[in-house]
Amino acid sequence: MKKKNMLGRRLTGEPASTWFFLTPASLVLLITAVAPLCYSFIISFFEYKLNRPNAEPSWVGLDNYAQIFQQDMFWTVLQNTAFFAVLSVSLEIIFGVLFALLLTNNRKSTRIITAILLIPMIMAPIASGTLWRMMFDRTTGVINYLISLLGFQPINFLGSSKYAIYAVTFVDIWRLTPWVTIIVSSALKGISGSYIEAAVVDGASRFQIVKNIILPLLRPTLMLVLMIRFTDAFKVFDTVYVMTGGGPGNSTEMLPNYIYNQALKYMNVGYASALAFVLIGCMAVISVFFIHLRNKAYRSVR
């Protein structure tokens, strides 16, 4: 106790330094992130159409929000986003965990495979979108060529409202399964080998060990990964923008693209801001839900 006091006296100049360290970053964030968010929130209660000359915001209360929920377009977009999120995230988790299980070891070959797996994840989403757009092309694309080798009719993936959303989802899975693999793999490395040794001694089969010991131990990490992937899936923009632009029709229009179009194409600022807060609301609900699940999983592991 005495020692702490002595240190405490020497630290008298510290609070000032602490604030000096903290202020620049906090100021930058306040000005460039918090303030714009507040502005968006306020303007979401106004009608403000920037494409009209001398446009002035006019107070409309909750009208923008009411309008959102009345429009069919919004429900289509929400449905697309949810479909995309559920399908891509669940497949990413399944494949990601599978490959993490197959690949967590200290071998040299694994390091090389990891290096290869990093590429889809670190390349710009714009580039992976372009790459797959090239592969999915109806006439010159290699996918349709491979399909025709198997004896099937070519499919116009990006030009049909039925298949386009699957193509976009597929690209997201291609891009982010490696991310899940790497995160889960690092969690796997943290699991103590003694559990597994004990199970081996007890005569459990490998499959039983993975099913009954490893997967339950991974639960808290998986909940967190689910949360991050889900909220990220609701932010998808680049891939859709470059692959389909939301089309054909509205079949691949997702929430961020919808907001972007409302805001910067139609300059419908108030409405777009309200949409933005609906998106934030969705993400908040998802986060809280998964944090709750994760805490539950964490308690059960302990």
């Binding site: 460039t32 968010l37 972007y260 600022v269 777009a272 933005a276 993400m283």
Partner: peptide, 19 residues
């Protein structure tokens, strides 16, 4: 907590004010 929440919000939501 502030910094943690801040890393999650979608960028498109502040597109208008930033612009």
């Amino acid at each position: 907590l502030w910094y943690m929440i801040q890393k999650m919000y979608p960028a498109v939501c502040i597109a208008i004010p930033i612009y």
